[in-house]
Design a protein around this nucleic acid. Structure first.
Length: 939
RNA sequence: GGGCAAGUGGUGGAAUGGUUUACACGUAGCACUCAAAAUGCUAUGAGCGCAAGCUCAUGUGGGUUCGACUCCCACCUUGCCCACCA
């Protein structure tokens, strides 16, 4: 007979299709909402990479159903979008035709998977009965003032001829087609996602999502705590945003983004020409060109000045294109000594560089890292750089007891000046006494743990630079000779030689005064704030600014409002109508859905193709009156997909977008499965929309979040690259199903590696699963209704193991455990009850074969309907197996009664000749005993 | 520049403090066959050895521990994401 997968699949598929899971009764049972990210029906068909995710979700659908939950597992199609439109342009057919055909292909392929979907709840975002409610959703934003039309410079893709959201610009290029993105000034609709930044941020803490996905979202929202400061000018204040308010005394200019509203006013007649041509040049650049980091920082002086709020100094105002208009306030204070970019700019344009922070270095490396539980002991000290009397070399100390390279250092005794202290240290440590002080390099601070004294030190060091005037030397004490060895270093060797950051900094300070320092420390040259730490100073300065009403602490975000207008045809029409004066109004409910016009030429041309529809223009005048017209853009398709999971619960409802009571029962989604590529876009927008609906009472769900648990399925790669038709590296499941069967392919998809990791496809591996299934089919003839203790005991272990693994999504090892169990059952008689329970546990992986064997061992009906996830037999273990180690080496294991103590076990060992022989005649000084596990004998 | 993840046989990977390399793939040998495929059985980290066995191996170097792939510190390498974000 043998294993014939085609027969088996043919026999059971119709029964799976008719299973009760295929139509979820939403009103009963304990809900479990298992959701796949719905696909875009591309027409390329499914490859083995898609299968991995769908296999995974079907596994959990079957598993949770066996665990007694009422599982909802719907599927639908994210059917609006560019590829269909582009294909339509090419083939001169309507995108709807293209889309409908692709959906049919998809459904056929999905059915081959043997998965259980509730197709009765299918949604299609391009169908009017769906997008009518997408339009409703948009209008709710409009109604609450959270949809707004703004004229702004937007990201423009010259190839697709449409605007792009920030999130769709990747590295300055269009996410979809890769063209360089340019800027264009357009009037567009925005959804105010920035009103929700804090709740989008804090909501992340409540979610059971992979940490790295949460990190991506946090990163994208990009909260940064800082302050604003107003600098007064003759045309009103310029507000800047900074995270380094402590450096405010180091400002040497104010820089404006070219787009800043004050640029024009502040430009003096003499600078008019230069500024104008600079603006023209930068505004025509693409974002990518403008953001090239390695190019020199450009900018021009406006002729105006601003007043420093503390020093009252006049600061020149410049325009510079590295200042981004969309972040902070579009204006920055230039602090060249403490910001790398500002340093480059000041160097390029000869602006003053003033150091206002004395650096502080905190040691975090063993053994001198700061101990948290100890207070700091304050000490004054010196760091001396000493130059050779004739050569261009500098004196370093190589420490003998620790791997340190330093300059000459030491403490300052009472009554000594830093110079005196340094001079005497130099004399003591290296013996030179003819030298002169050339330069004071300023102070640095260092926090570290002083091992010999067992205390935390906070050292305040004066950095001094000396030159020797002669090689004359005094005698050095033996003690000093034993401590370290003096080494003359050439300029090139210094950075490498010095181990501590503080000593490296002293060197850079000598080379380039003041050296760029971006860390924190203590203030200097900062008026009454001198001597404060960076943290404390920033707070005080912010307070003082707030009192004067010219600034204070604030928070800035990377996240921008969501631009949703698209100048494309194949999308949801924006339900806005303009009166003859151009004011926008919501399209009346009775006119919804506002259907896509059909008399449209799709060729892209800078405006929406819909604008060319005569019917659409007429329709507006018919519904309203002469001079009225509809918005001719369509919505970003991410709006469509931001709420589809709500529509599944009442897909045919023509009275409302979703059913509030069902949403209350079924949301949040219990398990959401999809790829990492949606970590910021879809998942952030969906959270935003859901939080909006929640805030205004459209939904009533405690969590305020749509997706409780997110699982990211790893990508399947071929030759290291993501599978895609255009790269020609696609593996189709069809021939594999034909040769090995659906079960084998499902098993192999999960066996490929941990499901959250990417996996390289290897053609041969499927053999292993296939052989396992053949073996199972053979073993089924050995099944006999006899209770076999050892098999039941083994099954209990197996079940414990996989139960835990399933919770942790470690399905590759669940597959292994099944193989291991079968390998240990042997080729004699198999306990029928063990067999039945085993078949239930593998049915989520191998639904067809498990079902076939279940039925042939005289069980009736479908596993998924008849069975529950099995319980253990609870066979009592009378003995325990103890591993015996001698001097860390395994010398054997023995079986001991569970009640045995350490003494009993030692006795057993002495009576076991095989083990006793290996343990050096029983001589050992002590033992380490871990009950039920091992005993370690230490000689 | 910032953030995150990962480094274990020829390969995918297993082991979250206790015999490293489970389970598979691949490879080799054997059985079945006229033959091949399929299937089954056996072997398979490296080095030394006739063998029993010994030594060495989880990116590198330290540390904690009776015991470290696992925990701590530093470093190296690779991958991913973000990035003139003030």
């Amino acid at each position: 007979m043998g294993y014939n997968h085609k027969d088996i699949e043919h026999r059971w598929r119709p029964k799976f299709d008719a299973a009760k899971l295929s139509t979820c009764d939403l009103s009963s049972g304990e809900p479990f909402y298992c959701l796949d990210m719905f696909p875009y029906p591309s027409g390329d068909g499914l490859h083995v990479g898609h299968w991995r995710g769908y296999t995974l979700s079907d596994f959990y659908v079957r598993y949770w159903s066996l665990k007694g939950k009422n599982v909802l597992h719907p599927m639908g199609f994210d059917a609006f979008g560019l590829p269909a439109e582009n294909a339509a342009i090419k083939s001169k057919t309507h995108p709807k035709k293209f889309t409908d055909r692709a959906i049919e292909t998809f459904k056929t392929q999905l059915n081959a998977l043997g998965a259980l979907y509730d197709w009765k709840k299918q949604v299609n975002t391009s169908s009017p009965d769906y997008y009518r409610w997408t339009q409703w959703l948009f209008l709710q934003f409009f109604k609450h003032g959270l949809a707004e039309k703004r004229q702004a410079l937007v990201n423009w893709c010259p190839k697709d001829q449409t605007v792009l959201a920030n999130e769709q610009v990747v590295g300055g290029c269009c996410e979809r087609c890769g063209s360089k993105v340019t800027k264009k000034s357009l009037s567009q609709w925005y959804l105010k996602i920035t009103d929700f930044t804090e709740s989008l941020l804090s909501g992340l803490d409540t979610l059971d999502w992979p940490e790295h996905v949460k990190a991506l979202q946090r990163n994208w929202i990009g909260r940064s705590d800082g302050a604003t400061v107003k600098f007064h000018t003759e045309h009103g204040p310029i507000e800047v945003f900074t995270t380094r308010l402590d450096t405010i005394y180091g400002v040497s200019a104010i820089l404006l983004a070219p787009e800043h509203s004050l640029v024009e006013k502040l430009t003096k007649a003499a600078q008019e020409k230069t500024v104008q041509s600079y603006l023209q040049e930068t505004l025509s650049k693409s974002d990518l060109d403008r953001q090239m980091e390695d190019q020199t920082k450009t900018g021009v002086f406006t002729g105006s000045t601003a007043i420093h709020p503390f020093s009252k100094q006049e600061l020149p105002i410049w325009v510079a294109d590295y200042v981004l208009p969309s972040y902070g306030t579009g204006a920055v204070m230039l602090v060249p000594a403490h910001d790398k970019r500002d340093h480059e700019f000041a160097t390029a344009h000869n602006l003053p560089i003033l150091s206002v922070i004395e650096p502080e270095f905190i040691d975090n490396k063993e053994p001198s890292n700061v101990r948290e539980d100890l207070p700091f002991v304050e000490r004054d000290g010196i760091v001396a750089i000493v130059k050779h009397w004739s050569e261009d070399k500098y004196l370093g100390l190589k420490w003998k007891k620790v791997a340190w390279g330093t300059w000459i250092t030491g403490g300052i005794e009472k009554g000594q000046s830093p110079e005196e202290a340094a001079t005497s240290e130099i004399l003591e440590e290296v013996g030179y006494n003819k030298l002169r002080l050339v330069k004071n390099l300023g102070r640095l601070h260092s926090k570290f743990y002083h091992g010999p004294k067992s205390e935390n030190r906070s050292l305040h060091g004066h950095c001094l630079y000396f030159e020797l005037t002669s090689d004359e030397m005094a005698q050095i004490s033996d003690e000093e000779v034993g401590k370290h060895e003096p080494i003359w270093l050439s300029k090139g060797e210094v950075e490498q030689f010095m181990t501590a950051d503080a000593h490296k900094w002293a060197w850079r300070q000598l080379q380039d005064d003041p050296a760029l320092y971006e860390g924190s420390g203590y203030l200097t040259n900062s008026g009454r704030y001198d001597g404060l730490s960076s943290d404390l100073a920033a707070k005080k300065i912010a307070d003082d600014l707030a009192i004067r009403g010219i600034g204070g602490q604030t928070v800035s975000y990377h996240l921008r409002d969501w631009l949703v207008s698209r100048q494309r045809y194949w999308g949801c029409p924006i339900p806005i109508v303009y009166d003859p004066k151009g004011y926008p109004h919501a399209v009346k409910d009775e006119y919804l859905p506002l259907l896509l016009p059909t008399d449209v030429d799709f060729q892209p041309g800078g405006e929406s193709p819909i604008a060319r529809s005569k019917e659409y223009a007429k329709r507006a005048e018919k519904f309203y009156s002469k001079g009225w017209h509809f918005d001719t853009d369509t919505l970003d398709t991410f709006v469509d997909s931001s709420w589809y999971y709500l529509r599944y619960l009442s897909p045919r409802d023509d009275q409302q977008a979703f059913d509030k009571s069902r949403v209350k029962k079924w949301l949040p989604v219990d398990l959401y499965i999809g790829g990492i590529e949606h970590a910021v876009l879809h998942l952030l927008y969906s959270r935003f929309v859901f939080q909006f609906l929640s805030k205004f009472g459209y939904v009533d769900v405690k969590t305020n979040e749509p997706f409780k648990k997110l699982f990211n399925i790893g990508m399947v790669t071929l030759h290291g690259a993501k599978m895609s038709k255009s790269k020609g590296n696609v593996i189709s499941p069809d021939p594999l199903i034909d040769a090995y069967g659906t079960d084998a392919l499902r098993g192999y998809e999960l066996f490929l590696g941990p499901v959250e990791n990417d996996a390289e496809w290897s053609g041969n591996g499927i053999n292993g699963i296939h052989r396992f299934l053949i073996k199972l089919e053979k073993l089924s003839t050995l099944v006999h209704p006899t209770a076999i203790e050892s098999q039941r005991q083994r099954f209990d272990e197996y079940l414990d193991t996989i139960n835990k693994m399933i919770q942790d999504f470690r399905l590759n090892t669940v597959i292994s455990e099944g193989m291991k169990l079968i390998n240990t059952l042997g080729s004699k008689v198999i306990d029928a009850e063990v067999w039945r329970r085993f078949l239930v546990t593998i049915s989520p992986m191998y639904p067809y074969l498990s079902q076939e064997l279940y039925a042939s061992s005289s069980q009736k009906g479908l596993i998924i309907e008849q069975e529950k996830w099995p319980e253990k037999f609870h066979v009592a273990h009378k003995v325990q197996v103890i591993k015996v180690l001698f001097n860390q080496k395994f010398v054997g294991s023995l079986e001991a009664d569970k009640s045995f103590s350490e003494t009993n076990i030692l006795e057993l060992i002495s009576h076991s000749p095989a083990i006793a022989a290996k343990i050096n005649k029983g001589k050992f000084s002590r033992t380490i005993y871990k009950p039920g596990e091992l005993i370690n004998l230490i000689p």
